[in-house]
Design a protein around this nucleic acid. Structure first.
Lengths: 196, 196
DNA sequence: TGACTGACAGATGTTGACCTTTGTCAGTCA
DNA sequence: TGACTGACAAAGGTCAACATCTGTCAGTCA
């Protein structure tokens, strides 16, 4: 019996573990509280509803997806190389999770689908990362002029086929998927790159 | 009581009408047979299973989607204009159905998702249409050199966000969607177009 | 003779009584 | 005093008996 005070972080950890073990359908607030050896009423002192708790778990998880991408954004080197690597890493990350932990992937996709807010924050974050690489490329004279925000968003949307969770069924064949992503990236980069 | 012989076409018509009226969950083979005033056993003389019947209805419906696009492919005029119009018409068609007949849209999406074959034929057909416009553009010196099949497929995939049924939730705001599609199309066409 | 029927077995859905879970809140304890 | 408990009402989920549907096939009818 721990004497530590109950924190939101501890609840998120327990909730994520429970979701991994039982899946979204079989995870109750009581399960989460039991793992923490508190009553389920205590969980409600930190999160206003079960939905809010699940969204918080998902938001934290999505943040762990976009954090490694930040390295590619801030790394030195040509913007075209970084943009290509950034999209490839984003796609590879999502596809790896879908392949290796399909249930967990499905869980988080379901929750994100149900809550516009959580998904929107994640998408905005990604679009911003892409926009910053594009801005670098324009500043360096590597890309043609344009609004980085619009172009970053366009890059994200044009590659949706390869990272949007709703299209995970389309990733069944990794070889085809990689070749297709290469073709789309080449098309896009050609569209961004300044001639000469 | 009709003396006409029962045809596959008549069954498809009745099945589509039943799907429209009752939805996919509530449409039984018996319902379809009843509308035709035959026993459900007769339907099985034309289609080996309920799944095959539903797939045939869906295939016919998808063909009605891609037929009007053919006009844009064969129409005279610059390839860039036609490619832009083609994607816009494809997106507008799918989005209009999703908006105006959400249940029917959901029905056909569900069936197509369940049967790789039907969906693959449709996608291949669309990729081929795009490839033909790209080939025209290359032949006319309007686009840079490249494999039309690869580029056509890339165009289709890069615009998936705007026409893939699995992403219909993302079309909620038509104004944003149109602006986003414009940005992606501009990016892609810039990538295809020969400088100068 | 061959398109069609209808009775049938097994699979799949539906229903409603029962049970678990969510979310609240007055009360306890340190 | 404020973090925590646990009993509770309402909402939602579970399960087994019941009903419908799918797919087959021997038999009918023109």
């Amino acid at each position: 019996m721990s004497t530590e005070p109950l924190t939101s972080e501890a609840i998120l950890d327990a909730a994520e573990a429970a979701l991994r073990r039982f899946g979204p359908a079989k995870t109750s607030v009581v399960d989460v509280a039991r793992a923490l050896e508190v009553s389920h009423g205590s969980v409600y002192r930190h999160f206003p509803s079960k939905a809010a708790l699940r969204e918080a778990v998902t938001a934290r998880w999505l943040e762990r997806v976009s954090a490694p991408l930040e390295d590619v954004v801030t790394r030195p080197g040509p913007a075209s190389r970084r943009l290509r690597d950034w999209v490839a890493l984003l796609a590879a990350t999502k596809q790896a999770i879908a392949r290796d932990e399909p249930e967990l992937f499905e869980t988080f996709h379901q929750i994100a689908t149900g809550s516009r807010e959580v998904a929107a924050v994640h998408v905005d974050h990604l679009a911003d990362q892409a926009a910053r690489i594009v801005a670098d490329g324009i500043a360096a004279g590597e890309f043609t002029d344009g609004d980085p925000a619009v172009l970053g968003r366009a890059v994200l949307q044009a590659t949706a086929r390869f990272h949007h969770p709703a299209l995970s069924r389309e990733w069944a064949d990794p070889a085809t998927t990689t070749a297709d992503l290469d073709a789309v990236l080449t098309l896009i980069l050609h569209g961004l790159t300044r001639p000469e």
